[in-house]
Design a protein around this nucleic acid. Structure first.
Lengths: 133, 133
DNA sequence: CGGCATCCTATGAGATACTG
DNA sequence: CAGTATCTCATAGGATGCCG
C-alpha cells in the first residue's frame, strides 16, 4: 500500500523509532550547514567558523561533536603547534550531504517565492486589521 | 569554480540571506514530519495529530501556520458542524516534499548505522573512563 | 473538532573570557 | 588555533483549559 515504507519497520513518525531520533538531529540549522560546508572536502576548524557566518565557537564544536558521534564526520588532530584540526565527511556523511545539498539548492532557488508568500501573508494580516474602522 | 552556487547571489551560509531564513524554518522536526505526512494527499487536523506521534495541538497548529504563511500548505475550512479543516500541500510544498521524503528515507535506511556509531562513541567514552585505575 | 489563550520550564544558543 | 567553561537570555515546546 504505502509506496515509500521503511525497509524494516523503521518509521520516522514513531517517537521511539531510531530513525526518528536521527531526523531530530538532522533537523538543526547548524548540522545542515556544517555538513554542506564540508561537502567539498576537509576543512579546518577556523575555516568552518569563517564559512558558517554567525556560528559561535561553542555551537561549532558542539555540532561537530554530534556529527562525529553519529559517524558522519571524521576528526583528525595534527600534533603540531599551533594546533591543527581538520574535519571531513565520512562516507555516510557524504551520502547525506548529497541530499542536504539538494535542500540547500531548493532553499536558494525558492527563497524569492517564500519571501513573496510571507509578504502576502503579512499584507493579508494587515487587511484583517483594516476591517476595523 | 563552485559547482553548486545559487542562481542569483543567494547563499544559505549568509545570515542575512533570505534562503538562510528559509533553511531555518525547514530545520525543524515538526515541519519535516508534517510536510512528509501531507505528501500523499490532504489530511484533516485530527488525522495529522494522530499521524505525528507525540505532537501537541499547539505545535501542530503552529507548524501548520508557518507552512501556510510560507506558501507550502493550503488550509481549507468547511463551514459545518462539527468543524472540518483540511490541509494540503501547495505545488511548492509538493516540490519540497519530494526532497524531504528522501531525507526521511535516508534516516530510516541508515538508522542502524547511526545507532551503531552512537553505541561505539559511547563505548569509546567509557574506555576513556576506564583509563583511570 | 479545531484551535486559541495561558502558563511554565527545559534548553538551545549567544556573548565572553580563559587555557593548552 | 582549537577548544572549554560560565553566564545569560530567548524561546521552543509541553501541559491545561476554554470557546465557537
Amino acid at each position: 500500500m504505502d509506496s515509500e515504507e521503511a525497509p524494516l519497520g523503521y518509521d520516522v513518525f514513531r517517537r521511539t523509532c531510531p530513525s526518528h531520533t536521527v531526523l531530530e538531529t538532522l533537523a538543526s540549522k547548524w548540522v545542515y550547514l556544517t555538513v554542506c560546508a564540508l561537502r567539498r572536502g576537509r576543512m579546518r576548524n577556523g575555516a568552518l567558523a569563517r564559512k558558517l557566518e554567525g556560528i559561535t565557537p561553542k555551537m561549532l564544536t558542539q555540532t561537530l561533536r554530534v556529527l562525529e558521534r553519529d559517524g558522519l564526520v571524521r576528526r583528525e588532530v595534527f600534533p603540531v603547534i599551533p594546533p591543527r584540526v581538520e574535519y571531513e565527511l565520512t562516507e555516510l556523511g557524504q551520502n547525506l550531504a548529497g541530499l542536504l545539498s539538494q535542500i540547500r539548492s531548493w532553499a536558494e532557488e525558492h527563497a524569492p517565492d517564500i519571501k513573496d508568500a510571507r509578504a502576502r501573508a503579512l499584507a493579508d494580516h494587515h487587511d484583517d486589521m483594516a476591517v476595523l474602522p
